Measured scan of single mutants.
Amino acid sequence: MATGGRRGAAAAPLLVAVAALLLGAAGHLYPGEVCPGMDIRNNLTRLHELENCSVIEGHLQILLMFKTRPEDFRDLSFPKLIMITDYLLLFRVYGLESLKDLFPNLTVIRGSRLFFNYALVIFEMVHLKELGLYNLMNITRGSVRIEKNNELCYLATIDWSRILDSVEDNYIVLNKDDNEECGDICPGTAKGKTNCPATVINGQFVERCWTHSHCQKVCPTICKSHGCTAEGLCCHSECLGNCSQPDDPTKCVACRNFYLDGRCVETCPPPYYHFQDWRCVNFSFCQDLHHKCKNSRRQGCHQYVIHNNKCIPECPSGYTMNSSNLLCTPCLGPCPKVCHLLEGEKTIDSVTSAQELRGCTVINGSLIINIRGGNNLAAELEANLGLIEEISGYLKIRRSYALVSLSFFRKLRLIRGETLEIGNYSFYALDNQNLRQLWDWSKHNLTITQGKLFFHYNPKLCLSEIHKMEEVSGTKGRQERNDIALKTNGDQASCENELLKFSYIRTSFDKI
């Protein structure tokens, strides 16, 4: 039985969820670079991206490699990797027998973001014989899940209580170790020597080791999670996991709180800001991140802002960003909400898709409305799209047979046209069989910064309504002859009103 693990408890099935942008060198404390989270699957090609990484700022997932063999891993080693800020997950990587050479110096898994409450997941690794993470000293947050690894031993010899604050939620089941077939031998045991430290858990006094050649490092209890030197002297209180010299914040392997210019500090002093819960960055760093993602459509890219001495992905609820200094300031009234469309555009074809934009005031991208039916549609669209004030790209209304009016965009005031449909149009209306009105132009103002209007096959939309939009939106004169079809717009509506004058002759039985 794995020490510190839980057996036999019912657990939810383990679901495996399925960018080499360097964020800056980590400095003297770390020998390499800070790398983003990685999802490495199918083959070993991307694994080489770990070569210079000291910190993975995010998670590391290595999974679904069915053609790899043990010899493929023999020359692979990433000794610079010290810390993973989120979680480490391995799933069905064939041929991998140990992690001792792959990650010989991995010391800390912070667990800032977890995989279903777990910071370390080893699942269905069919050839893994031992973990071998002999320098792993601290899992700051989260638990361990090690399950269905039929060859995995050296679990009962690990004292997880020396690595985690609590072992109650560890789930370590259905491994070879369960069948008591392992016969784990710690260093020196074969020669009758006791080389590794022994600890007591559940009444068992057991030597602690990761492999037959690597003991588990056990520091004096007084050192807590700070770690200790090879001689057993406690590291500085700002260290986490390990250090090369005692009581020196510049000799830590990793930091308990924050890293700044080669030393570990309790908090980031001005003019620095907390970033990702582990390091200090200056304003320029946060500003660069903001600008890199301002026009990016890459998933996970955030326009970072500053709030409460932190550089964070977005302002919290009730705050909006001051564009001059990136500071989050309290909103006066309802907060603006910028919604970034991942692929640059979004099609609204149902109430469900409209709900995804609920509360958005600025759309960074283009909207395509293609709704053919739905219950209580006008009210639903207004509830979900009615706060949109600005669209950076274009607005396209296409084959939306259920629409009679666009009044559900009740606050839309600006279409920038930074991206144009077919390279020309910022407003595009095609084949809307029941569209009769755009907006009530006596109450609604709309500016279209650039781009043209396109109207074709809107049989109940009168040309007068379209011409009014040209005047109000500032697009009059931009359109070419064929942009607004004269014969297919309003051709099934009563669009022309003329005053009919009647004269009559009164007659009676005795007068003409």
Rank of each mutant, 00 (worst) to 15 (best):
Q245K: 08
R41K: 02
I158N: 05
N325A: 13
L88E: 00
P246G: 11
Y154S: 10
H28K: 06
K191R: 09
G300Q: 06
D86W: 02
T107R: 02
N325I: 00
K148M: 07
T189Q: 08
K251A: 00
T157V: 06
I185Y: 07
S143T: 06
V253G: 07
G318P: 03
P330N: 09
E314H: 02
T140I: 08
N179P: 07
S296L: 09
Q204I: 03
I82K: 05
R69K: 02
L96S: 02
K292W: 07
V253A: 09
N42M: 10
R256V: 11
N295E: 07
G183N: 05
M125L: 03
P330T: 14
D277H: 14
Q216I: 03
K224T: 09
A198C: 11
H302E: 08
V218M: 09
P79F: 03
A230I: 09
G241W: 02
H212S: 04
L260H: 03
T267Y: 15
M125Y: 00
G227L: 04
I222Y: 07
E33D: 15
G142Q: 01
C196F: 11
L326C: 04
G37K: 03
N202T: 11
T140S: 09
G300D: 12
L50R: 02
P270E: 08
N150E: 06
T189I: 13
N202W: 09
V305L: 05
T140N: 10
Y319A: 10
T140Y: 07
L240M: 07
V108W: 05
L174F: 05
V265F: 04
Q299F: 06
G95W: 04
V34M: 14
D75R: 03
S324A: 15
M38K: 11
S54N: 13
L289C: 04
C268L: 01
A119N: 01
K294M: 07
I82E: 15
E130I: 08
E207K: 13
D101G: 06
L96R: 01
E51H: 13
E238M: 06
N105S: 11
Y118W: 09
N242G: 07
V173P: 10
C196W: 01
L76T: 02
S284R: 13
S323L: 11
P336H: 12
F285Q: 09
M321E: 01
G241M: 02
K251S: 05
D39G: 02
N170S: 07
D75Y: 14
T107V: 06
N195G: 08
E180N: 06
A198R: 09
L64T: 10
D248L: 04
C311T: 01
V218Y: 06
Y134S: 11
D247F: 07
C268W: 00
G232Q: 08
C335A: 06
Y30N: 07
D248C: 02
E124A: 04
F285V: 03
P31I: 09
Q299R: 13
E238C: 02
M83P: 00
N257I: 01
H48Y: 05
C328Y: 04
C196S: 11
H302Q: 14
H226T: 13
Y272W: 10
I201K: 07
P336F: 03
E314T: 13
S77A: 02
V55Q: 07
H214M: 14
N175T: 13
L233Q: 12
V206Q: 15
H212C: 15
P79Q: 09
L326Y: 11
H127L: 03
L96T: 01
R279N: 05
C311K: 02
P70H: 08
H236Y: 03
P70F: 07
L99Y: 01
R279E: 02
L50G: 02
F66A: 07
L136H: 01
N202M: 08
T45I: 09
L260P: 00
R145C: 09
L131T: 11
C301R: 06
L155G: 14
T45F: 04
Y319R: 04
D169K: 11
H127S: 15
C286V: 07
F103D: 00
L240Q: 05
K191Q: 05
L260T: 06
I56Y: 00
N322F: 13
H307S: 08
G241L: 02
D86N: 10
W160D: 01
N195Q: 09
G262V: 02
P316A: 04
L120S: 00
R41P: 15
L64Y: 11
Y154I: 10
V167C: 14
R41F: 15
S166T: 15
C223K: 02
G95P: 00
L50H: 02
I62D: 00
H302M: 05
S296Q: 15
E71G: 10
R69P: 07
C209M: 02
L155V: 15
V55P: 00
E147T: 14
V281I: 10
H290P: 04
R74G: 02
P197I: 13
N308T: 05
P104G: 01
A198L: 09
G300A: 10
G111E: 00
P249E: 03
K224H: 06
D178F: 09
W278M: 01
N117A: 09
W160I: 02
N309C: 03
V55I: 13
Y118F: 10
Y273L: 07
S317P: 07
L136M: 01
Y118K: 06
C335S: 06
W278S: 07
I172G: 13
I56N: 00
C264Q: 01
L326W: 04
T320R: 08
P271E: 15
C335E: 04
P79S: 06
L164Q: 04
P249C: 03
K148L: 14
M83S: 03
S296T: 14
E238H: 11
Q303H: 10
L44E: 11
C235T: 00
D101L: 11
C264L: 00
E33T: 06
A198N: 12
G333W: 03
